[in-house]
């Protein structure tokens, strides 16, 4: 009996440590650092989406809004607060958190309404940030330049740490009593309240964790690419990618979104990104096929086989 928890502790620790270590090691063998960094950013996004969608059932189509908020939070911190870049990156995460706190009333909405309301929120945020009247603050539609703090090596290391944080968040949610409450809420919200769970608070915490991860991802991405336009960091396809990666691997699992991001983003780049619409087509078809034939993701195949084998 005492063996099992210890073995689980070890495997949990490995799941937190190995993915960032793997990316770090990969940087010595593979010289396209920006590709690896972007892949790590997507791992964080897929896991962040996993926290809210996989454990509460709330699907934010507008997840990219937090990513964009993180990118702009960092840029504004650099330009107006003149803080060191690492602090600015953290403030990017805080920006995602604040936007999520502001939008937390959306959690009162159910399924489809929440999904679409979050999409509207991301679009509203995009139009706000890119508004010519706010040029003095956000530089409006003309984008942001972070060349003064550019440091690709440091940004890469930050992304490695981000992957570790994302894995830690998901492992914690998966194993903790908090995660158990979330699963209970998902199974039956009224019963969860009858078990004494503060449903609104639990969902809000998951929402804030999820948004902070996306904020940090946006912050590091902004740091790494250094020059960007608002439409680049509020691009809906970032939401699409995060959703596809998470769904493909399997939401509600620890490893699924990680595998989804690595496999699908790897394939995406292996074939080449010269024709984005062809990937949009492939990913669109993939979403439809996953829903119709593999609603629990890639990992469910393995689980099913294991269960049968036992």
């Amino acid at each position: 009996m005492a063996q099992r928890p210890r073995r689980q502790l070890v495997s949990d620790a490995l799941m937190v440590v190995l993915p960032p270590a793997g990316f770090f090691a990969a940087s010595f063998f593979y010289n396209n650092q920006l590709l690896l960094l972007t892949m790590m950013v997507y791992v964080a996004l897929a896991q962040g989406l996993n926290v809210i969608f996989g454990f509460t059932g709330y699907l934010p189509f507008g997840y990219v809004g937090f990513f964009g908020a993180g990118a702009y939070g960092t840029a504004l911190s650099v330009h107006f607060l003149h803080v060191p870049i690492l602090v600015a990156v953290l403030l990017g995460g805080v920006a995602g958190l604040l936007v999520a706190a502001l939008l937390s009333p959306l959690l009162r909405l159910t399924g489809a309404y929440f999904a679409i309301a979050s999409l509207a929120a991301a679009e509203a945020l995009y139009y706000l940030v890119s508004n010519p009247q706010l040029t003095a603050v956000t530089n409006g539609p003309y984008g942001v330049n972070l060349a003064s703090v550019y440091n690709s090596g440091a940004a890469f290391d930050a992304a490695v740490i981000l992957v570790g944080i994302a894995m830690l968040c998901v492992v914690w949610v998966r194993r903790s009593h908090f995660g158990m409450s979330l699963r209970a809420i998902r199974a039956d919200p009224l019963s969860a309240r009858m078990a004494g769970v503060n449903v609104v608070r639990a969902r809000t915490i998951a929402w804030l964790i999820s948004a902070s991860l996306a904020g940090l991802a946006g912050a590091i991405y902004a740091w790494a690419i250094s020059v960007f336009y608002p439409e680049a960091v509020f691009d809906l396809s970032i939401s699409v990618f995060a959703i596809v990666f998470a769904l493909f691997g399997g939401v509600g699992t620890v490893l699924g979104p990680l595998l989804g991001a690595i496999v699908l983003y790897g394939v995406y780049n292996y074939i080449g990104v010269s024709q984005p619409q062809e990937f949009q087509l492939i990913y669109g078809v993939l979403i439809v096929l996953i829903v119709l034939f593999l609603p629990n993701g890639l990992l469910s195949i393995r689980l099913r086989r294991l269960r049968r084998g036992r």
Binding site: H177, S181, R183, A184, D188, V197
Partner: peptide, 12 residues
């Protein structure tokens, strides 16, 4: 909570 074990049901 249909997707939780009995012990987890009580534990929550």
């Amino acid at each position: 909570f249909r997707t939780l074990t009995l012990r987890e049901n009580v534990s929550v």
